[in-house]
Design a protein around this nucleic acid. Structure first.
Lengths: 208, 208, 208, 208
DNA sequence: GATGAATGAGCCTTCATTCAT
DNA sequence: TATGAATGAAGGCTCATTCAT
């Protein structure tokens, strides 16, 4: 059984990343990628099955790891004793965002791909899905701690979605703008504060 | 005098809207649109010049009116006496958002096109541009009222961009999710509160 | 019976001339011509039948008049008594060329159309046809005067064609280069000398 | 290693030649060529890049070789000692034309393409360019040998252009008329004589 | 007669994918 | 397994001509 030539996978991988970033999934050309990588289009099919498979290979590992980390955080928090949830929430939330930021900066290109170059792939709703997880986790939390605006129906899961979208968009804005990490950290710190203050105002209007 | 067959314009307009919404600008097919509209591709060129002209015809009137309204609001506020700006800000902001929401619901499809189907057209950065206007207006305002976090440099225009992106994304989420208007109004009301609380926390930490 | 609007014919005529000159027959666009002329494509069909008809209208009158003049000259010479032909030839030839030049300069644009913009029309071989007339006339003349190189078969009609093509090409070069008429006259005078000297060398090698 | 199907290149090449000859570059259809050649349009792009590339492939090798030969002849003559130029001119000129004729007959179709089917390609001014080279070479020669009609200004480069156009047109007439080579040779021999006699009459009126 | 919209075939070109070598 | 040529549908667009108004 003939072996795949070493290094071609990586070359394709890198060139595809570049091409997808520049043109988006749909407008990227496999011929260009293969050429740039110094190999043939066939090589892509051998290694990645098809165009989407190539995109997948670049982006999915990051997505998977992200999910795992993300869900670990959510799960951990889920397992905190209900009585202490409210108290620990800010810390969890803040550390969660920090970790997310770190993760993003370790996988900057992949996030840019997910955000702005994934139209036409199964990841085109990636951010929505991510947000949806966060939303339902938050919603469960709100109910658990008996947040009145939720139990009374003033605030629904739908609204949490809106606010969370806003929050995450702010977060990902640092990716879209290619900010240096220190700046990003500074801004995200502020963003967390912004979000929490806004959040409390809505969900715990009586808090203060 | 040769007249355009009546109703074909509208038919093309509607079918194009549908096709663009479903597939996005780039992937939409003029052949499909013409066929669906029961006419020939040539008809499109008679009426809309070319593919982008067709997209334009659907979306530009809304964009233009939006700009006008939006800039009127910003200008009005700009002309308020500086000493009263801070006091009147919340009202302006809130009413502005309310009007924006009304406007969006009058032109729902067009906004969906602008948000998610405009890649490849001159509108692809529409939301960015919108946000940028809001950002610079806000920034000017902050300096006028002598907001300390701004004058001291803790907070920059870049961060205002992040927060404003977040805010507007929340706003447009109602479009993306096809919410009934009453729900939307309710949520936007809350979103405004959320934003203002968050905003104040960052920019006027000493306020309270 | 409704009447054609006055002046439109002329306008179309002029605009067509311009368009044909710029782009050649095939690449000229009737829509552009109509637009430029401030009328409709239909007008062209009413007045000129079709695209070629339009070209025809511009060019054919000139061609016809040219033929007539040209054939008159040939005929006149034909009717000269055979015994005097040789003697009168130079004068006829020279005056013919002079008249041709005058005629060309009265119809400069039309000649440019015939030479370089007629591909795709029935005039695409106009110059060939013209030359062919000249050739057969010349050939008849040669036989009449008993030119030895012809009667002996050293020189054929085919070769006369070659030489005549050369001659006429030189002639029309002044059109292609948009020369001022005085220059043209000077050059054509020289060209006639050139041709005649060359001609005699071939056909009457013993003359001198 | 994927190979181009053998013979397809040649088939395309031949069918393209045929189509271009029949309809000219602009009006030739790649679809027709591909069909005629029993392959797909894509094949053309694999082998020739695009429509002009196809024309190029047919014609350019001939043009390049022609340039080389042509310029070699001109250069050689340029390097002859000035004092012997006048004496050697006729021989050079005659041999040059002879060689040109041979070359044309080795590449008959290509010359027909260049002459009558190249509109719309970068070769559309091929003959003009060729003539222009000859003209400026001739002009330099005239000045070197101190031809009086040139130094006195009676005769200009412009007129040399006219005469040279005439000369070359005569030459290429054999192509346009598909003459058998022996006939062509005979005629070109005569044409050279014709040209030289005419030329001398104009440029060296005192010679005899 | 005047208009100019409608027609629809035709243009060159690009593409992801297949498959013979 | 590697190659890259072959495929052929599909893309946006232009055009001379027709014909309803």
């Amino acid at each position: 059984m003939a072996k795949q030539i070493e290094g071609v996978y990586e070359k394709l991988f890198q060139c595809a990343k570049k091409e997808f970033l520049e043109k988006g999934f749909k407008d990227a050309s496999l011929r260009v990628i293969a050429q740039e990588a110094g190999t043939s289009t066939g090589s892509i099919y051998t290694r990645f099955n098809d165009k989407e498979g190539l995109f997948d290979a670049i982006v999915n590992p990051v997505v998977e790891e992200m999910k795992e980390r993300f869900f670990t955080v959510l799960d951990n928090f889920e397992q905190v004793d209900d009585s202490r949830k409210e108290e620990l929430m800010p810390e969890y939330s803040c550390r969660g965002m920090q970790e997310l930021l770190d993760f993003i900066y370790e996988h900057f290109d992949e996030f840019r791909l997910l955000l702005d170059a994934s139209y036409g792939t199964r990841f085109q709703n990636f951010m929505d899905a991510l947000i949806e997880s966060e939303v339902s986790s938050t919603y469960r939390y709100m109910k658990v701690i008996g947040c009145e605006s939720v139990t009374s129906g003033t605030v629904t899961e739908e609204f949490i979605h809106i606010v969370t979208s806003a929050y995450f968009t702010g977060m990902f804005e640092v990716v879209r703008h290619n900010m240096p990490k220190p700046d990003a950290e500074h801004y995200i710190g502020l963003l967390v504060k912004y979000h929490m203050a806004g959040f409390d105002t809505i969900f715990f209007p009586d808090k203060y």
